[in-house]
Design a protein around this nucleic acid. Structure first.
Lengths: 188, 188
DNA sequence: CTATTTTCTTAAACTACATTAATTTTTTTG
DNA sequence: CAAAAAAATTAATGTAGTTTAAGAAAATAG
């Protein structure tokens, strides 16, 4: 039984036959460190479940500056879901920060699963709901906390990620410059 | 046919019988301007669909300062969904900004609908997904835009809300002080 | 294992936004 | 409609975080 199957079983009750049918719709893909999984100009035809490695999802602002929206690692999903579903051009860029192994699923297969496997509908419903909650929490933090408090929260809640990801990218995720993050770290 | 039924039909295909069964699980409630729909200390047993009026959802930070997380108006849902679902104490406070009429649904009825009406599962799945998208967009804005840019975006995208809600509450939503917002407005 | 590139650090000058406090305008209420 | 309360404005002063630039440390590639 693979990681994806385990993840699904941790969220919804589902039979092993259904699970096999479900997992059959995914294909394994590999990317090397620094490689781009998604370019902003491309059409988006897949979303991904991470077996090994981590990625950053980012945008360029009007001045061309990059902003990391989110990091994803083992057993998390990533992709430009909005473009994937609405068939609009990608608005995010996604880059592997380590050598990366994923399970990819095409839009066609995604839609087939939604129609054929009610447990998949429920699984994605719970994923969306939980993502909504964590986004809510992040918005709240941006409003209420200083950069230093957000940094401490990040360290406490993602100790794993904070080891694997460069200061530069963490700073961008927190919405501050690497120089200011460096200053915060010295102070500690 | 009521507003809620219309809203559901705009998102999923559903028969009229099912719709009636669904709407029967809601009760209409009224709150007057400034009244609190939800206090932070209370247990959360309902979520709400707005028929008329608008509300703000906010938190108090560690210094007791209020921060508006979101505004909701006609045909939108609001409530502390996280507490509602997980039965944890409320973490948000919700206040009516105008006289308010809502359709309320209890946790028990919510769960009954999820089990009996697959269209409701799909409907809430799409709601969660869309909320996730708009939260994603807001996080991105907080990272990439200045207060002034965020204010202009708010004016353009919620012209309706910006007429109905005081500067003070808009400033809090944008993450700035009323004084600074006042200065931005003069500049324009 | 050395050379090159990238990341991290430090510090001085600068800016977007906060704080405080006083005044005016608007809204609410009896 | 008058009095009181709440919201908005203005301006001076203060601060969290940025910018720029240069040097040190670490990671990567040849």
């Amino acid at each position: 039984m693979n990681q994806l199957a385990e993840h699904i079983k941790s969220i919804v009750a589902i039979s092993d036959e259904q699970l096999v049918k479900l997992c059959d719709r995914f294909v394994e893909k590999r990317f090397s460190k620094k490689e781009h999984v998604l370019h902003i100009t491309n059409q988006v035809n897949e979303v991904y479940f991470i077996l090994k490695g981590c990625v950053r999802t980012y945008v360029h602002d009007l001045n061309g500056v990059e902003h990391n929206i989110t990091f994803s690692m083992e057993d998390w999903w990533f992709g430009d879901l909005q473009s994937y579903i609405k068939k609009t051009p990608a608005s995010f860029t996604i880059q592997a920060l380590e050598d990366l192994t994923v399970l990819a699923i095409s839009r066609e297969n995604w839609n087939v699963l939604l129609q054929e496997i009610p447990e998949f509908v429920e699984y994605t419903r719970v994923l969306f709901r939980n993502t909504m909650f964590s986004h809510e929490n992040r918005i709240l933090q941006n409003l209420s906390y200083t950069a230093e408090e957000r940094y401490r929260y990040f360290l406490e809640n993602y100790p794993n990620l904070s080891q694997r990801i460069s200061q530069k990218h963490i700073a961008s995720y927190l919405g501050i410059t690497p120089e200011f993050l460096s200053m915060l770290r010295r102070k500690k």
